[in-house]
Design a protein around this nucleic acid. Structure first.
Length: 325
DNA sequence: GAATCGTGGAC
DNA sequence: TGTCCAAGATT
């Protein structure tokens, strides 16, 4: 049973705000690279970021490593077996703690994710908007969970929400609970869960600079340790992730070169749209040193264009590089 | 409690 | 194209 906890935990972390289809190849890759929690705990930070690159929400990857090291360092390589203990570990919040405890350790705690919130707010026609309603959902569900196999009940509710009780056009006629569903009885199943209106996303602008040597080496650098895409790899850009920057001109280039306008990349993050103007320049292979002594170039390195899979490049940067080639 | 934090697929 | 949203956590 304990052997499963690592896999349950890994999958639940990856599945936070992420679809099963997107997670699957990453989950398999991680299990191949690091079959157990001790393997992961001893991995290099950079190797984990490279393996996670493209999956998004990169603080999950940093917390994943912190958590693995805590399990090895503080719990002798065994995950704690209750939700309350699990939730003290990095990256494990109320949902993940409950899911791991219920599925791997049969801890009878209510597991409440977005699917369960939707199913239960419909069953009870809860008018309270999310995220307030979350505690009402947990309270309504908890009495059902002191069963012999709480993990199965959790899985059942989540699967129901992921299939029949979908956000739009739920298939109520096939639902095993429709006779008990207040929202269905009222013919208002699509109105739940009630949510507060969302704010419109602003658009930020910036410029990205792709510097390529004749021998197919590209200049990369590391982002800072906090904020958006923290600790990930990038090509030089303007300071687009800070609110005030909107510089899109080649004038912002980090060094002198024959910059060519390569086009524009659009990318949408959780809370804003981004439009990056992409500029590219070629350098002769003889130039082995740092392109310039500019501050914005700071530290960086040359990387082979054929080996970008070994870099911790978020998908935004892959788009930018593809645009410049 | 509200903001922040990625990405890709569905409609 | 725009919007929603997917097995949330952190600050």
């Amino acid at each position: 049973m304990q052997a499963d906890a690592y896999r349950v935990w890994l999958s639940e972390i990856m599945l936070q705000q992420t679809t099963v289809a997107a997670v699957k190849p990453y989950y398999e890759k991680f299990l191949t690279l690091w079959p157990g929690v001790a393997d992961l705990a001893s991995a290099e930070d950079e190797a984990v970021m490279v393996a996670w690159a493209g999956l998004g929400y990169y603080s999950r990857a940093r917390n994943l490593l912190k958590c693995a090291r805590a399990v090895v360092g503080e719990f002798g390589g065994q995950f704690p077996d209750t939700a309350s203990q699990l939730q003290k570990l990095p990256g494990i919040g109320p949902y993940t703690a409950a899911a791991v405890a219920a599925i791997a350790f049969r801890d009878p705690v209510a597991v409440v994710d977005g699917n369960v919130e939707r199913v239960v707010t419909r069953l009870l026609a809860i008018e309270t908007p999310l995220p307030q309603a979350k505690e009402l959902v947990r309270g309504a569900l908890q009495p059902l969970f002191p069963t012999g196999r709480p993990g199965d009940l959790a899985q059942a509710f989540m699967d129901l929400g992921a299939t029949l009780c979908s956000p739009k056009r739920p298939t109520c006629s096939l639902c095993p609970l429709h006779e008990h569903c207040q929202a269905y009885a009222d013919g208002q199943q699509e109105r739940f869960p009630v949510k507060l209106p969302k704010l419109k996303k602003p658009t930020r602008k910036g410029a990205a600079f792709v510097l390529i040597r004749d021998d197919q080496q590209i200049w990369l650098q590391k982002r800072g340790p906090s904020g958006l895409l923290a600790d990930m790899t990038q090509v030089p850009t303007t300071n687009w992730s800070s609110r005030e920057d909107g510089e899109t001109s080649v004038d912002a280039s980090p060094c002198k070169a024959d910059w060519q306008n390569a086009g524009e990349v659009r990318h949408t993050f959780t809370h804003f749209h981004l439009e990056l103007s992409v500029y590219s320049a070629r350098l002769s292979s003889g130039r082995k040193t740092t392109p310039a002594s500019s501050e914005t170039l700071a530290m960086g390195w040359w990387s082979d264009l054929d080996a970008l899979n070994d870099e911790a490049l978020p998908n935004l940067m892959r788009k930018v590089i593809a645009c410049a080639l």
